[in-house]
Simulated assay, not measured.
Amino acid sequence: MNTVAHSLSDSATMLRRQLRRMQRYPSMTLMLIGMPVVFLLLFVYVFGGTLGNGIGGVGGGRRAYVDYVAPGIILMAMASAAQGTAISVAMDMTEGIVDRFRTMAIWRPSVLTGHVIGSVLQALLGIVVVVGVAIAIGFRPDASPVEWLAAVGLLIGFAFALTWLSLGLGLAAKTVESASNSPMILMLLPFFGSGFVPTDTMPTALRWFAEYQPFTPLTETLRGLLTGDPIGDAGAQAVGWCVGITVAGYLWSKYRFDRTASH
């Protein structure tokens, strides 16, 4: 077996391992997917009437707000999946399974590759559930096939970015408990962006932070693609954030993994 075939085979094996872990721990998967759904229902049915009237839109009220908030909740679902990635990696690092892998004739990066692909698939599953619930409660995207493809591409790119970042967080964590807490900032960032309310309604300092953190251009781009709102330069910023986070997360994860493997 040549090197490429060997690496692909090992990566596929590690991916199957991650998918079986999802089956073995369904409560974690349900929690990671269920939390964004809870936030969606909470904001639409509890706050949606007032917030929807404030942002305007067709019909106002909950009808307008579900169209506004759904893209932010979709990105929150991806951030929630990142927490599961960090926990999964930390479990591998603390339970000794990686030490066992080192004694086997496997392509060493396949351990990370399996985590990455498995986590992206889990994130996409969460997105499908959130979009399904959003449509059930009134979300009506107005995207063309090309815009849908662009939205899916953006989500896959951001899923890879957050996965590599969360891999680094999991590898850097000393315990599984700390790994579960470290990605929480990713869950909070959508609240401090344009995911739930327009940034121009925020105080000056908070508005400055909201406009220059990654979730705002990603939210604006996804919202524009799905609902027909203008995107402006948010699209270029969103792609830039995806590329930057992916590169930084990959280099950090590789450094942490190689450093651990050398000990």
Rank of each mutant, 00 (worst) to 15 (best):
L171C: 03
Q83R: 08
L41T: 10
P36F: 07
L41V: 12
G48R: 00
L149G: 15
R259T: 15
Q213P: 03
Y212K: 07
V152Q: 13
A81F: 02
P198M: 04
Y255E: 11
D233R: 13
D67C: 11
L41P: 11
Y255P: 03
F158Q: 05
N2R: 05
P141C: 01
A159K: 09
V46Y: 01
A79E: 06
P145Q: 01
I185E: 11
A64K: 04
M187S: 12
S7C: 04
A172D: 04
G157K: 06
M93C: 14
V130Y: 08
P183E: 12
H263R: 15
L8P: 02
I117Y: 07
A248C: 12
D99I: 13
S194G: 08
L75P: 06
W107G: 06
D10M: 00
D10V: 00
V130G: 05
L149W: 12
G56Q: 04
D92C: 10
L149S: 15
A5T: 07
V239N: 12
L19T: 05
M93E: 13
V89R: 06
G195C: 07
V239P: 14
G195I: 03
E211F: 09
L169N: 09
I156H: 10
M184G: 10
L189N: 09
T175P: 06
L51D: 02
L218S: 04
T29P: 04
F191K: 06
S11T: 04
I74Q: 09
A86K: 03
T29H: 10
S166R: 02
Q83G: 07
G57P: 02
E147K: 15
I97M: 07
D258Q: 13
A236W: 13
T199G: 10
L15F: 14
V247I: 05
L51Q: 01
V44P: 02
G244T: 07
F158P: 01
V98E: 03
M1R: 01
R63K: 10
I55S: 03
R63M: 11
P26I: 01
Y25V: 15
A179R: 01
L149K: 09
L30I: 06
L125C: 10
A161D: 00
T219Q: 07
M202L: 15
L188K: 03
S253N: 05
K174S: 13
R17W: 15
L186S: 09
L218N: 03
A79S: 11
F43E: 00
V98L: 08
M14V: 00
W148I: 03
H115V: 05
L40D: 03
R259D: 15
M184S: 15
F47G: 09
E177Y: 12
T199L: 13
L154S: 03
V111L: 12
S11R: 02
L41E: 09
D200F: 14
A77H: 12
E211I: 10
W208A: 11
L154P: 04
T175Y: 05
P109C: 05
F196H: 00
G57I: 00
A236M: 13
V129Q: 12
P71N: 12
F215G: 06
W148C: 05
I245G: 01
T175W: 04
A86P: 04
W107P: 02
D142S: 14
G34R: 02
M1Q: 01
A105S: 11
T175A: 04
A81K: 00
P145N: 00
A248Q: 08
F192R: 01
